[in-house]
């Protein structure tokens, strides 16, 4: 009891910084035009400028666009996909994981085998192949990712539900003939929500890495789009003239993923201390 208060009070500095960074990124996502108006305006005449050029802190890219503004504008494309992946995957996970964990039997067998088989497949490889061949752009890639990510969540939710299901407080509710819907919504979900939320949160980081890998390969986004992965591959061509064009996008991806992981790990630690 005292311990939880302690941990809440002592949020490590790394976590505070990470939360700050994530808030900034969320702001860029929500209002790109506020922070970087005209990011996609080109000034080809100017050509590629190196970092620290006057008026262009991070220089300009091959099309003469300001790299910093592009970076801010790219946050939306870089983050919306991963967030949708995490949401979609957790929804499938909750649905199928609960069915498998609560009802058991044949449904459990089918769902668990499906998850096992999908889990043994190389995710990124399949995503590249599927998104590339199907084409259809950004949202097809997101859909493919949702399908490939969901088995992890199905398994997670399933084992969390199974762990709760055997506990005496659930059995007491069963003895009192409380309805299944009520047991699931009032008893099981509140107790697995933290695990599920943390996993959802960490999935955003993995989604970011996967989605930016696809866009780096030119899948899902067009050349010249404001998207961190795409900027990295676009910037590769001007690595001599303005290394900041590629490196800044890379750093943005790494920093975001690291921050999400730090906050997620901290939440895991905290919830395991509380229980």
């Amino acid at each position: 009891m005292n311990r939880t208060i302690d941990t809440r009070a002592r949020m490590p500095r790394s976590v505070k910084i990470s939360i700050g960074v994530l808030i900034v990124i969320a702001a860029c996502m929500a209002f790109p035009n506020l922070f970087a108006p005209g990011a996609l305006n080109q000034d080809i005449a100017q050509g590629t400028l190196p970092a620290l050029s006057p008026g262009h802190l991070l220089g300009t890219d091959a099309l003469g666009r300001d790299v910093l503004k592009l970076l801010i504008a790219g946050a939306r494309s870089a983050m919306v996909g991963p967030i949708c992946i995490a949401v979609g995957s957790i929804l499938i996970g909750i649905l199928l994981g609960t069915i498998a964990g609560w009802y058991g039997g044949v449904a459990d067998w089918i769902i668990s085998r499906y998850a096992d088989i999908t889990l043994s497949m190389p995710t990124l490889l399949l995503a590249i192949v599927a998104a590339g061949i199907i084409g259809g752009g950004y949202w097809v890639s997101v859909l493919v990712m949702v399908i490939l990510y969901s088995p992890f969540d199905i398994r997670l939710v399933r084992s969390a539900v199974v762990a709760q299901k055997g506990k005496p407080y659930i059995e007491s509710a069963l003895v009192m003939r409380i309805s299944t819907g009520r047991i699931l919504s009032r008893h099981i979900f509140p107790n697995i929500s933290m695990v599920v939320f943390v996993n959802f949160f960490l999935n955003i980081a993995y989604g970011l890495v996967s989605m930016s890998s696809l866009s780096y390969l030119g899948l899902g986004v067009s050349p010249g789009d404001a998207d961190w992965g795409r900027q990295l591959s676009d910037g590769r061509g001007v690595l001599f003239d303005n290394p900041a064009a590629a490196l800044s996008a890379g750093i943005a991806i790494v920093v975001t993923a690291v921050c999400v992981n730090i906050v997620g790990n901290w939440m895991t630690e905290r919830s395991s201390l509380e229980s």
Binding site: K167, P168, Y169, E171, S172, R186, H187, P190, N191, S275
Partner: peptide, 12 residues
């Protein structure tokens, strides 16, 4: 049941 630590829903 036996175990006082899991016989009540910790969230309620």
């Amino acid at each position: 049941f036996q175990d006082p630590y899991s016989s009540l829903n910790p969230a309620h």
